[in-house]
Amino acid sequence: MKHSVVALTVNGAERQVLVAPGTTLLDALRESQGLTGTRRGCDQGACGACTVLVDGKTMMSCLLPVETIDGATIDTIEGLTPMEGLHPIQEAFLEGFATQCGFCTSGMIMATAGLLARNPDPSREDAVRAISGNICRCTGYEAIIDAVLDAAARMRAAKRDKAA
């Protein structure tokens, strides 16, 4: 069984990843990159815990064989976290009590990042749609939806401040 070397840009850094045939992006991130913030919940694209951004779009990393995405740019929860403090989405989730066990949180936050990149001013319905592929068994979702909208407001405010 021949392994392959795949080039990925992971959280801004160029990486060469050695993978066995069919290794998922999820396994590559967790096992060879040590980026364990991306979680495994189902290995079948049903729970969203492994959501990352691939070339700026949210994708389930458990459904991507690494050999098929040579050259892709990957952003994970670790890359979202700034050098100091937290990203506005993280702040909104933290302050809005949008986490309980924390297992779905990385995926929820990356799904939110994907939404806000496309749509900086989402409606509540947009927020619900954006996380409709992410399962949370603890919160009942309301706090998470509130946090998505709060994150959007924080990011718009930050953009206005920067412009001013």
């Binding site: 913030g37 670790e78 937290l86 993280q90 933290l94």
Partner: peptide, 21 residues
Amino acid sequence: VQRADARGHVTGQTQFYEDVT
């Protein structure tokens, strides 16, 4: 009252069993 583990959750740094390899 903020959860003690929430910051770990939102940064993906909370260590679940599968994160130890």
